[in-house]
Design a protein around this nucleic acid. Structure first.
Lengths: 218, 218
DNA sequence: GGTTGTGAACAAATTCACAGCG
DNA sequence: CGCTGTGAATTTGTTCACAACC
């Protein structure tokens, strides 16, 4: 009986696992059955020592002198990331960004089906975007709770982002992906990640004047 | 004559400056003339010691016993980020995401005017989105060079992202913001930041199973 | 008194370098 | 022999705690 990996996985490692996953999917698609930390590092854009260290937190899934079995590692990384199940999401804000996110098929394919869109604009409520009904923002707690949604995506203007976060939390959402340029205050049991376009551009602006320093994001 | 700040500003600090900037803009909008590291920390969602340490890399712009002058600090942070000038950008990929980005007014307002959109689809080339002409992707090097664009935003499907990056680099772009789920290889003189929606969701998926750990992004 | 600015202590993340093993 | 897995060294980032100063 193999020991379960007992180490706590560092945050920086967790953030890279999805990139390794994507690289492994690519390799699997090319019918590659075995790979080295070197090759994986190249595909993921990091160095080999980091790959080995990161993967070692999950367990000893490689073979010395040989490398990693692509399919096996793929499964282990998926499992570690909790991707063996679907996580239904809702998108709040049916404006340009919200609609673009809903239309971007990549979500459902990758295990994050969009079960509802919300907006506060009566003109939008009741319409359908990318096959998903746009519902009244006030119904967030009810719908989220009823359909067991775990992840909420905020694509609203900044001034209402906190209110929306509160509604999502009230419905029992445990993770929020925030596209609004606003800092959210939530219960510590809720995970928040933010994506702020203006912030990214401003960071690039900094390195535009100074020399770049391999500024890689997220 | 005050010494110019000679310290190299840490990457982690650079990534937070835009958040402080936003907080300062908010304070200025509320006609607040002076603020403390404590208050700024609250608005930015970090702790006060970090704010002070971060700001100290820029210079000594506060007053002991009093705090920071909002307008003055606002200017200093802007200047440090290189936001006293406009940085024209181009968006490559006029699909859902590219169009949403072009329509999102926040760019131009914040000093990043969108000067062109590019696509490879003949049906899109020649149309206008958000007041911006959609040009042929093959013209990227020429247009970018001619209009002195410094930042390119990639909103294409993953398989062509590297080609687009090469075209942008050929045109002399020095920064790239990459929304495609692909690792880009570019000359080290080019800064790259990436925003990957699937990656963000997968990270949240991880913390969905484990407890959250104040997982804050970017 | 109040708040900044900063060395020093601490923690996290990265990289090195090599023992261990197939 | 080759490549993983990992302690140890190093670097980077965070937090503490207090002297300096208004």
């Amino acid at each position: 009986m193999a020991e379960r990996p007992r180490r706590r996985i560092p945050e920086a490692t967790v953030a890279r696992l999805p990139v390794y996953l994507r690289s492994l999917v690519e390799l699997a698609g090319d019918r590659v059955s075995t790979t080295s930390s070197e090759r994986l590092a190249e595909l993921a854009g990091v160095n080999a020592a980091k790959v080995r260290k990161d993967l070692s937190y999950l367990g000893s899934y490689g073979t010395r002198g040989v490398g990693y079995d692509v399919e096996y590692l793929l499964f282990q990384v998926s499992r570690e990331l909790g991707l063996t199940q679907d996580w239904p999401v809702v998108i709040v804000g049916a404006g340009n960004l919200g609609a673009a996110l809903a239309n971007y098929g990549g979500f459902g394919d990758r295990g994050f089906p969009v079960v509802a869109l919300f907006d506060s604009d009566p003109a939008k409520i009741g319409t359908t975007i990318a096959g998903v009904k746009v519902l009244d923002q006030r119904d967030i707690p009810r719908v989220v709770q009823a359909s067991g949604v775990a992840i909420g995506i905020i694509a609203t203007p900044a001034p209402v982002a906190q209110d929306v976060a509160d509604l999502l939390a009230a419905g029992g959402v445990r993770s929020i992906l925030n596209f609004a340029p606003a800092v959210l205050t939530v219960d510590p049991s809720v995970s928040v990640r933010k994506v702020d376009l203006a912030v990214e551009l401003q960071i690039l602006s900094f390195y535009q004047q100074r020399g770049p320093n391999q500024a890689v994001g997220s």
